[in-house]
Nucleic acid binder design. Structure first.
Length: 323
DNA sequence: AACGGAATCAACCGCCGGTTG
DNA sequence: ACAACCGGCGGTTGATTCCGT
């Protein structure tokens, strides 16, 4: 599904990333950060351009990146934000923690665009039908919530994206106006007020010339309304939204509970699997290399210690065929 | 089973805005 | 003030997979 690897005239590798390249990039960034993407490939021993490295890191390798199917809540949020702001994928992505803009963009073009086309102007219709539908929608959500909580939490993240197939307009309408308690957690009045403000602002997006900063600030207000998504997300079981947002370039420490990239996205990792077991389900070996002082490593030592040390990792890395 | 069109999604490309010298 | 550099963003591409015939 990806371009085959090839080299351009400058000798830079293009096309699909190999697990070895991923490993190099991830290891380097976790060790040294990414203060300069242009110089990074050389320092990391990669024959890639800096942009390509950045993209790979942001979309797939960065800790906390969620892979797999979108939940109904995520899809609803994308539709709503897109309705308000248009193709501002990066802004939308900021309101969907763990989701990369590229993935959201793809999902929009492949699934949601069709759905919205078939159900135009959801916001207009929802205003009219709000009164009559709201109660029903609440009931639906609450019953769904109960059933979700009654099942394995992993099902929530892997729940297939049913929006275009199953989501009724009633359910969709419930998104932006339904401020009822979700999963037993009340939305505060403040967050509702913020939402209204942001809705008004977004409504004028096309008329006003927004500064980037203002736009982003207001989009964050909108995100307050959707924190319930985090609450039911598997990420939230161990990483709060606040913590999640703090995951930046300065924090590369291994976090228990972070969703690492799912196995299916990198199926052919035989080389490293042989040496280390399943790379994507086992803790990353290079994680040994960067351990912040404040990180309470002792409690994880036994879990991480599978008998493979840094020396072996370095040895394997050096023996890998150079590109 | 074979074929062809549609769907999917990782990755590339070019542009833009911010920063630095 | 200007140019060069860099990071980020959104649009597009194209290989692979899916699905209907």
């Amino acid at each position: 599904m990806v371009r085959g690897p090839f080299y351009d005239k400058n000798g830079l590798k293009k096309g699909a990333w190999t697990p070895e390249e991923d490993c190099k990039l991830k290891s380097f960034v976790q060790r040294s950060g990414h203060s300069n993407w242009c110089k990074l490939p050389k320092l990391a021993g990669l024959s890639r351009c800096g942009k390509s490295c950045r993209l790979r890191w942001v979309n797939y390798l960065q800790p906390g990146v969620k892979r797999g199917n979108f939940t109904k809540e995520e899809e609803e949020l994308i539709i709503k934000l897109h309705e308000e702001a248009g193709n501002k994928w990066s802004m939308i992505a900021r309101n969907l923690p763990g989701r990369a803009d590229n993935e959201i963009k793809n999902h929009w073009h492949t699934h949601l665009k069709k759905y919205v086309k078939q159900n135009p102007k959801t916001s207009e219709v929802k205003e009219k039908s709000e009164t009559s539908q709201l109660c029903k929608a609440k009931e639906n959500r609450e019953s769904e919530s109960e059933s979700l909580h009654g099942s394995d939490s992993s099902h929530q993240s892997l729940e297939s994206s049913p929006l275009s197939k199953e989501l009724s307009s009633t359910k969709l309408f419930s998104l932006s106006r339904d401020h009822s308690p979700v999963n037993g957690k009340n939305c505060t009045e403040d967050s509702l007020a913020s939402l209204e403000t942001s809705e008004n602002s977004f409504g004028n997006m096309h008329a006003k010339k927004y500064t980037k900063q203002r736009f982003e600030t207001e989009s964050l207000h909108a995100s307050a309304h959707f924190h319930h998504i985090l609450e039911i997300s598997p990420l939230s079981t161990e990483v709060s939204s606040a913590k999640f947002f703090s995951l930046g370039s300065t924090d590369h420490s291994p976090k228990p509970g972070i969703n690492w990239i799912e196995e299916d996205s990198l199926a052919s990792f035989e080389t490293f699997e042989e040496a280390f077991g399943n790379f994507w389900t086992e803790p990353f070996v290079a994680d040994y290399m960067y351990i912040p002082d404040e990180f309470p490593m002792s409690q994880y030592i036994s879990y991480y210690d599978d008998g493979i040390g840094i020396d072996l990792f370095d040895q394997v890395m050096q023996e890998l065929p150079k590109n």
